Simulated assay, not measured.
Amino acid sequence: MIWYGASIHRSEAIKDLLRTKSGWIHLVRLPVYSPELNPVELLWSQLKRSLKTK
């Protein structure tokens, strides 16, 4: 599972899931904002910017 550190990913539900699936899920943490590692970040950034200007 690739986890980019957003606050939603630090909820108790997610922590419980990771505890119960220990050994089944390999967690890879990315920085909160890392467009070079997660290309969709650039898309979301552009979309948000275009919505703000309208």
Rank of each mutant, 00 (worst) to 15 (best):
A6H: 13
V32R: 02
S50A: 13
I8L: 01
K21P: 02
D16P: 06
W44F: 00
Q46W: 06
E36Y: 06
I2V: 07
L43S: 09
T53P: 05
I2H: 13
W3C: 00
I8C: 13
K15W: 08
L42M: 09
N38G: 12
R19F: 07
R49H: 13
A13V: 15
G5M: 06
D16E: 15
E36H: 13
I14T: 04
L42I: 10
H9P: 03
L37E: 08
R10D: 11
K54F: 04
I2G: 07
V40L: 03
L43G: 10
Y33P: 08
L37S: 06
G5K: 03
S11E: 09
I14R: 01
L30G: 04
R10G: 06
R19S: 09
E36A: 09
N38R: 15
A13E: 11
L17Y: 12
I25P: 02
I25D: 00
A13T: 14
P35W: 01
I8P: 07
A6R: 11
T20R: 15
L51E: 00
H26E: 13
S50F: 11
S11W: 03
S34L: 07
K15V: 15
E36P: 11
K54H: 15
I25M: 02
S7R: 13
S50I: 07
S45K: 09
R10V: 14
A6Q: 13
L37D: 06
T20S: 15
P35G: 05
H26V: 07
K48T: 00
R10N: 11
I14P: 00
S45R: 05
A13N: 06
G5D: 00
P39N: 09
L43Y: 12
K52S: 09
L43P: 09
L47V: 05
R29T: 08
L27M: 10
K21F: 08
D16L: 01
K54M: 10
S34M: 09
V28C: 03
L51M: 00
P35C: 01
E12L: 10
L37V: 15
V40S: 04
W3H: 03
Y33C: 05
T20N: 15
K15M: 07
L42P: 05
G5Q: 01
T53W: 08
S50G: 06
R29I: 04
R49A: 02
S11D: 14
Y4N: 12
R49C: 01
S50Y: 10
S11M: 00
W3P: 01
P39V: 05
P39A: 07
W3T: 03
R19Y: 07
T53K: 14
R10S: 12
R19N: 10
L18S: 04
R29W: 00
A6E: 10
T53Y: 06
S34T: 12
L18H: 02
Q46I: 04
I25V: 14
K52Y: 10
L18E: 03
T20P: 10
I25H: 02
W44K: 04
R29Q: 01
W24G: 14
L37Y: 08
G23C: 06
H9K: 05
K21N: 05
M1F: 01
L30R: 12
L43R: 12
S50K: 09
N38S: 15
L37R: 13
I25L: 00
S34E: 10
K15G: 02
M1C: 02
L51H: 01
